[in-house]
């Protein structure tokens, strides 16, 4: 199995027998919510759509997997979403088969999808790799595989001797700690389970990785071995272990 990092996404190509393009946290329709909070921007859905299509064109995948939070508004679907979602999804379908792993923002997304496109929210294994949005406890079947998850929108801040030199979207890779994760042992699996948290495709989203490791907010992020977690940039550059980030920031 090979991973290919698409930094113009950020997105991932997971290559096994099939070629899966994984895109997480698109949050189409976020602008309405931003406006509600006092930030007034025109919809950037077109730009985001073009960016996804460019990734598809560049990588010729067999499958496009949207890893949750395709839309943004909850609990109600907004007018912006009713207007935009059908066209967005059919634009994808025209290029490649689509699967959607539902996220916490995807309430009501079923109406926009076709038969067989919606995956179960506690995750699915496709071609040997496990996928989940990341807000729920993963199904036991996922354990022992590499789990690719969205939901956390990781970003990294690089620090040097004088200050913060860069903030950028990033991947966080970590091992699931069986001691913390009750399901890990129940299944009696011997194999290590690793989790790869993907950065959000949506350009507005981002949580500092240290915020994720120090104040975990999901079953997955609460169950990882943070001391051995590693950080990668969107082009696959290995930044270093999370502990090194801590050293640079901590008092």
């Amino acid at each position: 199995m090979n991973l290919q990092f698409i930094s113009d996404g950020p997105a991932l190509i997971v290559q096994n027998r099939t070629r899966v393009l994984v895109v997480a946290d698109l949050h189409f329709g976020i602008e309405s919510d931003l406006a509600y909070h006092g930030w007034h921007f025109s919809s950037r859905s077109d730009e985001r759509l073009r960016r996804v299509c460019a990734c598809i064109d560049a990588t010729s995948p067999d499958l496009l997997l949207l890893l949750g939070d395709v839309k943004h508004s909850i609990p109600k679907t907004t007018r912006q979403e009713f207007r935009e979602m059908p066209d967005i999804l059919s634009a994808f379908r025209d290029l490649v088969p689509v699967r959607v792993m539902p996220g916490n923002h995807d309430i009501g997304i079923r109406r926009f999808l076709q038969e067989g496109e919606l995956l179960p929210k506690d995750g699915a294994v496709i071609d040997g790799v496990a996928y989940i949005h990341g807000h729920t406890t993963p199904a036991p079947a996922l354990l022992g595989h590499l789990i690719i998850a969205g939901h956390h929108h990781p970003m990294v801040s690089l620090h040097d001797e004088v200050g913060c030199s860069l903030r950028a979207p990033a991947y966080l890779a970590a091992e699931l700690d069986p001691a913390k994760f009750r399901h890990a042992e129940k299944k009696g699996t011997r194999k290590k389970t690793r989790v790869l948290f993907m950065p959000a495709f949506n350009e507005y989203a981002g949580f500092d990785i240290l915020q994720i490791t120090r104040h975990p907010f999901s079953p997955l992020s609460r169950s990882i071995r943070t001391e051995r977690a590693e950080v990668f940039l969107t082009d696959g550059t290995y930044v270093g272990p999370v502990s090194a980030l801590e050293d640079n920031v901590a008092a």
């Binding site: 909070h37 006092g38 930030w39 007034h40 950037r44 989203a205 981002g206």
Partner: peptide, 21 residues
């Protein structure tokens, strides 16, 4: 310019990236 309200809520949003726009 009206892009940001005087009383905008800046806690829930990653503003840093917003500014790039």
């Amino acid at each position: 310019f009206g892009a940001i309200d005087q009383d905008a809520d800046y806690e829930k949003i990653s503003i840093q990236r917003l500014l790039e726009f």
